[in-house]
């Protein structure tokens, strides 16, 4: 009963949406890449790099939105590297992704230390404040949960239906899905496989950048080396978990955010003595189980992981 009273609080649900936000950005970003046939394992490093770049931009210009812009550009830079490696050069997506993550994580740490040195107190910014939507925020319970959030939280939940619409109701979305399912057919129909994959990876980088920006500029007010702590990998898992569908992936993000928010509550309230790491590993365990269970009818894009060359058919 006491657990229920801990859960059924406005603060709990508001926190849940905030925890889900970077996961949704990461997941939707990864979704664009994978629907075009590219597994972007660079996501962890790209989110790290964006979080660092966005924070630094905001720190020096005192403009949070400029910081977000920097983060988005940083993310797109990561997407561009992935595109050069696995689209233009047709290299293994696995190894390219690991390389991108190693490189961009390393660069984040290096540049952060270069810019800020090793001060005794870590540099902080004045982070984003929540945006209170008039009228709606006054609705009891729902108001404070849904309509008193950070601007980036609204954006995250907005891009899910927008992505779904783009994928299933626009010609570009159809091209993107065809490129991911059957690049030969797309090529025959006059769609440039390479250009479409570049676009997908740049969009993916943009969203990963927003995820990183949210973490270092809204969720927290500083960049730390543990700021991403596996959220990129969780996003990869969520795409599989959500069977490459925007809405299902969002549901997965909300489920994992629920587990995480619950973990934070229980830890703070000191009620149940389960090691907090059990909750932290839950998304990973659930994903492995889900992959084993759904693998036989999983709907992975058929051309995922396959480089495409016009000459080789």
């Amino acid at each position: 009963m006491e657990i229920l009273s801990q859960i059924l609080q406005v603060g709990f649900f508001a926190a849940l949406l905030r925890i889900a936000t970077p996961l949704i950005f990461g997941t939707i970003g990864e979704l664009y890449a994978e629907r075009a046939g590219v597994l972007n394992l660079g996501i962890e490093g790209i989110m790290m790099f964006s979080a660092m770049a966005g924070f630094s931009g905001a720190y020096f210009t005192h403009s949070l939105w400029f910081g977000v812009l920097v983060a988005v550009l940083a993310g797109m830079l990561g997407g561009l590297l992935m595109a050069v490696l696995c689209v233009s050069l047709g290299l293994s997506q696995h190894v390219s992704g690991i390389g991108t993550t190693l490189l961009f994580s390393g660069l984040s740490f290096f540049l952060y230390r270069l810019i800020f040195g090793q001060p005794s107190t870590i540099p902080v910014i004045e982070p984003f404040r929540t945006v209170n939507i008039p009228w709606l925020a006054k609705i009891p319970i729902i108001g404070p949960v849904l309509f008193d959030q950070y601007a980036l939280v609204y954006l995250a939940f907005l891009i899910v239906p927008v992505t779904s619409w783009i994928l299933y109701h626009t010609p570009w979305g159809l091209n993107l899905r065809t490129v991911g399912e059957n690049p030969q057919a797309a090529n025959s129909a006059g769609v440039s496989v390479a250009a479409t994959r570049y676009q997908a990876l740049l969009i993916a980088g943009m969203f990963m950048g927003l995820g990183g920006a949210f973490l270092s500029m809204a969720q927290y007010n500083a960049f730390t080396f543990g700021v991403i702590s596996g959220r990129g990998w969780i996003s990869i898992a969520l795409v599989v978990f959500g069977q490459w569908s925007p809405y299902k992936s969002m549901a997965g993000a909300l489920l994992f955010a629920f587990i995480d928010a619950l973990q934070l509550r229980l830890q703070a309230s000191n009620m149940i003595h389960i090691p907090y790491q059990v909750f932290l590993m839950m998304p990973f365990v659930l994903t492995i189980l889900a992959m084993a269970l759904v693998s036989r009818n999983a709907r992975a894009p058929a051309a995922l992981l396959r480089p495409f060359r016009k000459e080789e058919r």
């Binding site: 490093g45 390393g106 290096f110």
Partner: peptide
């Protein structure tokens, strides 16, 4: 952290 950057860069250039 130059050591980390070197590792990542080496993987990319080798690829």
């Amino acid at each position: 952290f130059l050591a980390d950057v070197i590792q990542g860069t080496a993987l990319v250039t080798m690829l």
